[in-house]
Design a binder for these strands. Structure first.
Length: 484
RNA sequence: GUCCCCAUCGUCUAGUGGACUAGGACACUGCCCUUUCAAGGCAGGAACACGGGUUCGAAUCCCGUUGGGGAUACCA
């Protein structure tokens, strides 16, 4: 297919009726990749003309979600609501030029006709009742103060265009009807607003969701009637849920904000969403934004819908967690540290602990949870600690090990390991007999990073304290289970 | 209902008429590594929706069926 030549002007035009959905985010990402790949400008436009459903807070929310995920826009945000007079003005021009006409038909009447047509198995098209009105009839209604909408006079011809992702499209004239440009309250409809804005903003490429595919044959003649350059279109397939139906709340998080709160890294979400419907060629899947920009090619955009796979997102996030070092992770981790009460923990120790645990967590929230034992006493996992209670020699072993560690000249993992193994030898036991309870004493769990890394990072003082506490735990009278 | 779009492992995908015994990734299973848990390495099971064509040859092109999705608004 044809290579897209820059500079181009693309736009992302969400309506602020909710948090930024992953589908919207993906659309923004493809616009971002295209814009960065070929050069030009990315325009952010907020389609807030539906005042009842729009919310200023959501507008800010969408911007912050886009910024967080790493989408860069060059112009805007422009609020569509502020351009209403302009939309109105252009509609008046179409009316004056005879490219649009007033429709006095009552909505209820049209609804009835629509239902009847559907019953007969036919597609309903506005029968152009009001197009046939004489000037005199129009004037009479105007004088009588009859409300009217303004309809676009659709040309009676096939509308064809080449969609970037779907190829050649052809819509026959009987599939289209004279849609409304201006409502009877004078407000422009979505179709009117988008086309006027796209023209005024010099948009050359419109990459949007598939739900707009059937709007495109309406928009193309409108662009022409308005004397504007018809942009190139590309319609992205939808993102589906596990049941292959449109992604919905039932499957958990669907907005960028929710993934952020769960502890997904922005790089991971960007990467994951970009690959949901686009393939850069080759087998690599972990790619930075810069690499994706370099490789981006609309020809490799998929036309079939994709199911959103949470598991794979989590996997990708864990890959990013492992790739980034503790310092790079710091700003992302901060809110989650606050959440678990580690907001003012010692940074050096925090970084050391993060390096030990990053490959063991799938989300930032999980990672923060794994860090707690380094700073606070935590409960011993009841199931995993139960078996240590059965060994009467264990408290003695651990006391000796504690004393050895307390007096160790250098508290390094090599020295710690040598000391532990030496003690095991002296006592004629296997190293594992000491290793496992020591891990439990320090972290409260049976799993985690290599033990001596854990001990070193914990530090001498805290280690000794943990030993004391665990020895006391082992020695306390054990409750006897009822019935035994 | 009508119009439009889509169809490769459970999922994301590679594949653009012969190199396909259909490749990779997630998930799953087994093995290795190992003080545990991860990570990593190796191996395994797992797909061309169905039916007709076209062609010497079809996952790939055409038609139909089925399934899924979208649009059918004075919502965006």
């Amino acid at each position: 297919m044809t290579k897209i030549q820059g500079p181009i002007r693309v736009r992302f035009a969400p309506s602020p009726t909710g948090f930024l959905h992953v589908g919207g985010a993906r659309t923004a990402i493809y616009n971002d990749l295209l814009r960065q790949n070929v050069g030009g400008a990315f325009i952010l436009r907020i389609e807030d003309t539906d005042k009842e459903r729009s919310d200023e807070a959501m507008t800010r929310q969408i911007q912050s979600a886009l910024a967080w995920i790493g989408v860069v826009w060059d112009e805007g945000p422009f609020l569509q609501s502020e351009r209403l007079p302009r939309h109105h003005e252009r509609a008046e021009e179409l009316l004056a030029a005879g490219k649009a006409y007033r429709c006095f038909c009552a909505p209820e009447e049209l609804d009835a006709q629509r239902t009847a047509a559907q019953k007969r198995g036919e597609a309903f098209r506005y029968p152009r009742t009001c197009l046939k009105l004489s000037q005199q009839e129009i004037d009479e209604r105007l004088v009588a103060g009859k409300p009217f909408a303004v309809r676009f006079k659709m040309p009676d011809e096939h509308i064809t265009f080449t969609d970037i992702v779907r190829g050649d499209m052809d819509f026959p004239p009987d599939a289209l009807d004279d849609f409304i440009l201006l409502r009877s309250d004078g407000n422009p409809t979505y179709h009117m607003s988008v086309c006027v804005d796209d023209i005024d903003m010099g948009i050359t490429h419109v990459i949007r969701g598939e739900d707009h595919l059937s709007n495109t044959p309406k928009h193309i003649p409108l662009f022409r009637a308005l004397g504007g350059q018809v942009p190139t279109f590309g319609h992205l397939p939808l993102i589906l849920g596990q049941d292959k139906k449109r992604l919905s709340k039932r499957y958990g998080a669907t907005s960028v904000e929710e993934f952020r709160n769960e502890g997904i890294l922005p790089q991971a979400l960007y990467n994951f969403l970009a690959l949901l419907g686009w393939n850069p060629g080759g087998d690599r899947e972990i790619l930075s934004r810069d690499e994706m920009i370099r490789l981006f090619d609309v020809d490799r955009l998929n036309a079939s819908p994709a199911v959103f796979d949470r598991e794979k997102l989590l996997w990708m996030n864990s890959q990013y967690l492992s790739m980034l070092d503790a310092v790079a992770l710091r700003p992302h981790l901060e809110p989650f540290l606050e959440e678990v009460g580690l907001g003012d923990a010692d940074p050096a120790r925090l970084d050391a602990a993060v390096s030990l645990h990053r490959t063991r967590a799938r989300t930032l929230r999980e990672l923060a949870g794994l860090l707690i034992p380094y700073f606070r006493e935590t409960a011993y996992d009841p199931e995993a600690s139960a078996k240590f209670l059965k060994d009467p020699d264990l408290p003695g072993h651990l006391e000796a090990l504690r004393d050895r560690y307390a007096g160790l000249p250098d508290f390094t993992k090599e020295a710690l390991e040598a000391a532990l193994r030496a003690q095991a030898d002296e006592r004629g036991i296997k190293a594992g007999v000491l290793i496992h309870p020591t891990r439990m004493a320090l972290s409260g769990t049976a799993s985690g990073p290599p033990l001596f890394d854990l001990v070193e990072t914990m530090g001498r003082e805290a280690t000794v304290r943990h030993f004391d506490r665990f020895i006391a735990f082992l020695r306390q009278p054990q409750p006897v289970a009822a019935g035994e």
